[in-house]
């Protein structure tokens, strides 16, 4: 079983390494993601949002609703952790009282 896993891993790694040439270089203007909506953001971000940092402008202004979802996910994660761990604490306190 371990042998089969190793062989599959080697095959997949080889396939990934063979496809590296097809990737666009970093910062290539002519690649597909850099031609769709990125030039619009780069041109209008300073004028629209008043923030010179384009990352902040996109995260907080153009995509503000997504960031609201992210913040809610953080909040829900914290509340879930606290609920699970505090539940254990209450059980431990009750068990200690019985003893």
């Amino acid at each position: 079983m371990r042998m089969i896993g190793t062989i599959v891993l080697v095959i997949i790694t080889t396939l990934f390494c063979l496809n590296v040439d097809a990737l666009p270089t970093i910062g290539d203007i002519n690649s597909a993601p850099n031609q769709h909506i990125t030039p619009t953001y780069i041109e209008h971000c300073q004028h629209d949002t008043g923030s010179p940092n384009i990352v902040t402008g996109v995260l907080a202004d153009y995509r503000g609703f997504d960031t609201l979802g992210e913040t809610s996910v953080m909040f829900v994660a914290g509340i879930t952790t606290v609920l699970i761990l505090r539940e254990n604490r209450k059980k431990a306190e009750k068990g200690g009282a019985k003893k």
Binding site: T49, G50, S51, A60, A77
Partner: peptide, 22 residues
């Protein structure tokens, strides 16, 4: 764009408090 900068500052204060306290 000053209003936009004000709104961005407000929501970043909210995100900061939420992440820090979590």
């Amino acid at each position: 764009h000053e209003l936009h900068a004000m709104g961005i500052l407000l929501i970043e204060i909210g995100v900061t408090i939420c992440v820090m306290m979590t």
